[in-house]
């Protein structure tokens, strides 16, 4: 071992978790799987319809109660196009966008499919016009956020 050799010890950082989605998110996912619809919950104080559904409003620190469906159409608010592959993440190009679905007071993030991506700048200009979108479900929804994505109308 030379006097200047610096030792590196290989390590791993893998842990197992069971994330509880909770009643609200479970119902939200169930609605995705069984009824192919997107649900929000309304704050008892500020009355905003919060999407995706959740048990409480963090701005008011109050519980939500009523459940309401939103969409299936909405307006794109902002987006990005991922053009570079990062390790462990899906293959580009990927369009990710926040969309406020009709009836909702908050925006929901998901992927945007069905856009011609051969010219990134052209695709960006199209998305920059804040187009109307609709939710599109996969053939066999599993009750995950990836059961649906957005497509331009």
């Amino acid at each position: 071992m030379s006097e200047s050799e610096l030792i590196e010890i290989a390590g791993q950082w893998n842990f197992n978790y069971n994330y509880f989605a909770g009643e609200s998110a479970s119902r939200f996912f169930r609605e995705l799987r069984e009824n192919q619809r997107i649900m929000g919950t309304r704050c008892t104080k500020c009355r905003r319809l919060l999407v995706p559904a959740r048990a409480f409003c963090d701005a008011c620190m109050e519980r939500t109660n009523e459940w309401e469906a939103v969409g299936p159409e909405g307006t794109l608010d902002t987006f990005t196009i991922i053009t570079t592959q990062f390790p462990g993440l899906p293959k580009p190009p990927i369009v990710m966008a926040y969309v406020t679905l009709d009836g909702a007071d908050t925006a929901l993030i998901n992927l945007v499919h069905g856009l011609d991506m051969s010219d990134i700048d052209k695709a960006a200009r199209r998305l920059n016009s804040l187009p109307r979108v609709r939710t599109k479900f996969i053939d066999e929804p599993k009750g995950r956020i990836t059961d649906f994505s957005f497509e331009l109308i």
Binding site: F20, S26, A55, F56
Partner: peptide, 27 residues
């Protein structure tokens, strides 16, 4: 123990909300 009805945020919210209520309810 392992109450699947609430996710972590909801678990936290319940206790903080209860402490606020114990203090009279107001923020």
């Amino acid at each position: 123990w392992a109450d699947p009805r609430r996710n972590l945020s909801e678990f936290i919210f319940d206790t903080v909300r209860n402490a606020l209520d114990d203090a009279g309810g107001s923020l």
